[in-house]
């Protein structure tokens, strides 16, 4: 993609050129306000872009072909394209009036048109995978942050997306439960061929599981490379500064 995004006069992303290969795990790091969340939100089409086109599997996501030219996609087209992308949020955003199981079944039943029975089987399998099967009948208000986030991951996966987006999914969690969420993501990396983009502040985790790490600064990719390259021998001054600042904080 080659994309620009602005909120009013503020250019948040400027001519970002960004490619992710199928099955690749890309971590995005960078200081607060550098546009990391905005990138994921434009990919989820929660934000419209001002310039450029995003493609998923060679098909335009934000635009559709009409009479040989690309025009901004309408709601219908977006809805169809969104099914191939799943997103998990920093604040979980589970539906409070539904149980864990109902949260997972909602998309498959309402959007994909699965029968209740199929959706339940699929959801229970995923809740099992994230270790939440015992709590399937609980409402989110009865679950801890880590548990809610694991249900949120299962809910996104129940749509069988090809791309998963994680926006600081551990930032709102107590330190002792971060592991239960990162372990689920680790499992996804090793056992599933999902394309994943993850915004994170956990450098150790990013280093462990990513194929590639991107350092964002001012709405641009300041530097990117394998975890080994980026953490081991950062080239740019800003990257070095950021990494050392993060190291001090830990």
């Amino acid at each position: 993609m080659n994309v620009s995004k602005s909120y009013g006069k503020l250019n948040v992303i400027e001519h970002l050129n960004f490619d992710v290969a199928e099955g690749e795990m890309v971590s995005i790091i960078g200081p607060s306000g550098s546009g990391k969340t905005t990138v994921l939100r434009t990919l989820m089409t929660l934000e419209t872009i001002n310039d450029g086109v995003i493609y998923v599997e060679g098909k335009p996501l934000t635009h559709m072909a009409k009479g040989g030219v690309l025009v901004p996609a309408d709601e219908r087209y977006l809805r169809r394209m969104r099914t191939s992308i799943g997103m998990c949020f920093q604040s979980f955003n589970l539906f409070p009036h539904m149980t864990a199981l109902q949260n997972c079944m909602e998309g498959p039943v309402q959007v994909l048109g699965l029968s209740k029975k199929e959706a339940r089987e699929r959801s229970e399998e995923l809740l099992h995978m994230v270790g939440m099967i015992d709590k399937r009948g609980q409402h989110p208000s009865r679950l801890s942050g880590g548990q809610q986030q694991r249900v949120a991951i299962a809910r996104a996966l129940a749509m069988r997306p090809k791309v998963m987006l994680f926006d600081e999914v551990t930032s709102a969690l107590d330190p002792e439960v971060i592991g239960e969420v990162t372990n689920v993501i680790r499992k996804l990396v090793t056992e599933h061929n999902l394309t994943m983009l993850m915004v994170t502040h956990q450098m150790g985790f990013a280093r462990d599981i990513s194929d590639r790490v991107c350092f964002f600064y001012g709405g641009k990719i300041e530097e990117q490379g394998t975890p080994h390259e980026l953490f081991g021998s950062p080239q740019r001054e800003r990257t070095k500064q950021f990494l050392s600042a993060v190291k001090e904080a830990v």
Partner: peptide, 13 residues
Amino acid sequence: GQWEAATALSMSP
């Protein structure tokens, strides 16, 4: 966030 989570599941308006 509730709207956004529902949108991310491709639910119609």
